[in-house]
Measured scan of single mutants.
Amino acid sequence: LKKVVALYDYMPMNANDLQLRKGDEYFILEESNLPWWRARDKNGQEGYIPSNYVTEAE
């Protein structure tokens, strides 16, 4: 899975979204639905995130 790091905080707009915290790492599960990607956080929560809020992890 592709790993990304959040560049900004993101508060979910609806139940399908995943909250982002700046500096945290996330795994990308699906990239087909631009600009929204399906992601999983370190706690196993899954949801959609804005792809322009993250960058690929080193």
Rank of each mutant, 00 (worst) to 15 (best):
E25Q: 10
D24R: 06
N16I: 08
L18Y: 01
E46Y: 05
N16K: 11
V54A: 02
W36Q: 08
P50A: 04
E25I: 15
T55H: 09
P50S: 05
D24H: 13
N43K: 09
T55Y: 10
L18Q: 01
R38N: 05
L34Y: 14
Y48D: 06
A15C: 11
N14T: 11
D9Q: 03
D9G: 03
Y10I: 03
I28C: 03
M13W: 06
Y48L: 11
L34E: 15
P50K: 06
E31L: 09
Y8G: 05
E46N: 04
Y26V: 04
I49S: 00
A57N: 09
Y8E: 08
E25C: 12
K2T: 07
Y48V: 07
L1G: 08
W36G: 05
K22C: 07
G23H: 04
L20K: 00
L18C: 02
W37F: 10
N52M: 12
R21Y: 14
N14P: 02
W37S: 07
D41L: 01
Q19C: 09
D9Y: 03
N16M: 13
L29R: 03
M11F: 15
E25K: 06
Q45T: 12
Y48F: 13
I49C: 03
D17K: 08
E31N: 09
A15L: 11
A6K: 00
L1F: 12
P50D: 06
K3S: 06
Y53D: 02
N33M: 12
G47C: 02
Y10N: 02
G44K: 04
W37E: 04
Y10G: 01
G44I: 01
A6M: 01
L1Y: 12
D24A: 08
F27I: 12
E58W: 13
G23A: 03
N16P: 05
R40C: 07
G44E: 04
L20G: 01
G47K: 01
W36D: 04
Q45H: 14
E25V: 15
Y48H: 06
T55M: 14
Q19T: 10
L18T: 01
V5Q: 06
Y8C: 12
Y53M: 11
K2A: 04
W36P: 05
L20A: 01
L20R: 00
A57C: 11
N43S: 11
I28F: 02
A39M: 04
N52I: 10
L20E: 00
S51M: 11
N16V: 08
E31P: 07
K2L: 07
D9W: 03
P35T: 15
N43C: 11
M13S: 11
K22M: 09
N16G: 15
L18K: 00
N16C: 13
E46R: 03
A6T: 00
L20C: 02
N52Q: 10
D17C: 13
E46L: 04
I28T: 02
L34D: 15
M11K: 12
Y48C: 10
E46K: 03
D24Y: 09
E30R: 05
K2C: 05
R38K: 14
P35W: 15
G44C: 06
L1V: 10
P50R: 07
S51Y: 14
S32R: 07
I28P: 01
Y48G: 03
T55C: 10
G47H: 01
S32Q: 08
R21E: 07
K22F: 05
N33A: 14
L7C: 07
E58N: 13
Y26G: 01
N14G: 13
V5T: 10
N43M: 12
L7E: 03
K2W: 07
E56I: 12
K42C: 06
A6N: 00
N52Y: 12
R40L: 08
Q45M: 13
P35E: 15
M13R: 09
S51V: 10
Y8W: 13
D24S: 08
A6Q: 00
D24T: 06
A6R: 00
N16W: 15
E25P: 07
N14H: 14
E25S: 11
A6G: 03
K2S: 04
D17Y: 15
N33E: 14
N52W: 15
Y53Q: 05
Y26A: 02
E31V: 11
R38H: 09
G23P: 01
N16T: 14
G23K: 02
Q19F: 07
V4F: 07
Q45F: 12
N52D: 13
V5G: 01
N16F: 12
Y53K: 05
D9A: 04
R38W: 15
L18F: 04
N14I: 05
L34Q: 13
M13G: 08
K2Y: 08
A6I: 01
D41Q: 02
W36S: 07
P12T: 04
Y26M: 03
E56H: 10
D9L: 02
T55F: 10
K42Q: 11
E30T: 07
K2P: 05
T55N: 07
I28K: 02
R38E: 05
Q19N: 07
K42T: 10
M11S: 12
A57M: 13
E56V: 13
A39T: 02
A6D: 00
